[in-house]
Design a protein around this nucleic acid. Structure first.
Length: 120
RNA sequence: UGAGUCGGACAGGCAGUCGCAGACCUUUGGGUCUGAGGAAAGUCCGGGCUUCGCAGAGCAGGAUGCCGGAUAACGUCCGGUGGAGGCGACUCCAAGGCCAGUGCAACAGAAAUAAACCGCCCGACAUUUGUCGGGUAAGGGUGGAAAGGUGAGGUAAGAGCUCACCGCCGUUAUGGUAACACAACGGGUCCCUGUAAACCCCAUCCGAAGCAAGUUCAAAUCGGGACAUUGGGAUUGCUCGUUCCGUCCCGAGGUAAAGAACGCUAGAGAUUAUCGGCGACGAUAAUACCAGAUAGAUGACUGUCCAAGACAGAACUCGGCUUACAGUUCGGCUCAUAUU
RNA sequence: GGAGUAGUACCCAAGUGGCUGAAGGGGCUCCCCUGCUAAGGGAGUAGGUCGUUUGCGCGGCGCGAGAGUUCAAAUCUCUCCUACUCCG
């Protein structure tokens, strides 16, 4: 991914959970917080309650793909953690993508089309 | 043709665009190749590998359990024996020993390893019914289980009391590596229920822990106090033996440790062929190198074909077992029916 | 990834082969006490499902699920499922 690295350490996850803002819809829960850098860090969490390892890795891939394809439109400088809920088990790629974009839009993390331009 | 049984194979394919991991090449733009499973799962067994106090002893503990073989090893597999089921092909069986010892067997039942409740028969008394004494274990009843079964003789009634056959036990002969099979002879004190997934006995095997094992990489030092020849050492229990280390607390200093690399994938391996073996399997030769991540790589979209895609994701590794699974397909064999 | 522990009624749980109608406590229902409640005291119900019965009741199954050993299993053996704990 061009502007983003993945969020890896458990203590970073816990920091985002405790200090960040959260929002949820039917499929996903999202936490985000400013990280003080120029790039984003993106973390995915899928609990064992969602399904077996095939289901979990499939959801992980769908979330990563959705983020990758809309990365140019996301504001920089944030740590973002996305948690899959149990209802994401049967969701298709379209549903996952629209759910992710919906949450990003509600938190005003998307760049507006008319105003500021994406820094290259 | 129908029904069945056993064994094997496959596990969506193709094209385009965008993307992921590793290796190699690179003109640093990128390019080429490779990239999950039959169960990768459960972690139920057994090996390799690593470390430790293994590679010392004893006890305890655990596992396996018809016989022979295969194997690195196994609780697995193959071939046989015995038993159970099926017309059959075939399938299933923790299948050593309660004739070594000990324990347990509730309730019911007269009695549970030792007998006589109802019966049956004989005798005495009484004689309508019955009472007492003795014999008996065929019948009834209880129970999971009541001192072998069927038939005949025998008897007061009965009884292995006697006989025939079957079963059981013992000895011997024959076949087989063996489990065992089969035959002959003898045995009626044929002396004895079940349970060993009860303790136990017998035979064989087992050191323990696990890649979060472990190895390497920086500065790795100083001060104070306390305890002391006893104490400690991840590694199922106890005793002995052997071996190593002083231990604990507080403070300073310092770090990359909320690390990095190795272990980490070339192997008791895979494919093909030939040979040996009934088979599990073994031997030889040739061919190619075929995932290796470290928050964890295989996905998304579009088109198209069909049988419309199940269960499901490597985490050191290998051999098994068990469990889950849409379907498609191939082959062997059995039975029934029809035709020849 | 690896190692281990547990599962019994709504909850906490005892029970380690046989008279268990599954002990006991909490809870729940009713009564007493009080002007009313809480606390306290007493009694009762125990939960599910199937069959039968107008009903009371009786019988079968049921101790996470399924097989097996045994005359007999919550208990012994095996295979699964679920929950929880530990590791550097």
């Amino acid at each position: 991914m061009l502007f983003t690295e993945s969020l890896k350490k458990n203590y970073r996850f816990r920091y985002v959970y405790s200090r960040g803002r959260s929002i949820a819809n039917r499929l996903l829960v999202m936490y985000h917080i400013k990280n003080g850098t120029q790039s984003n860090r993106y973390g995915i969490s899928v609990s064992k309650k969602v399904g077996n390892s095939v289901v979990r890795s499939r959801i992980t891939r769908l979330l990563r793909e959705s983020y990758r394809l809309s990365e140019q439109n996301i504001k920089n400088g944030y740590d973002i953690v996305v948690i899959a809920r149990a209802s994401a088990k049967e969701a298709s790629y379209r549903e996952i993508e629209s759910a992710l974009l919906h949450l990003l839009r509600k938190q005003r993390l998307l760049k507006t089309e008319d105003g500021e331009q994406a820094p290259k």
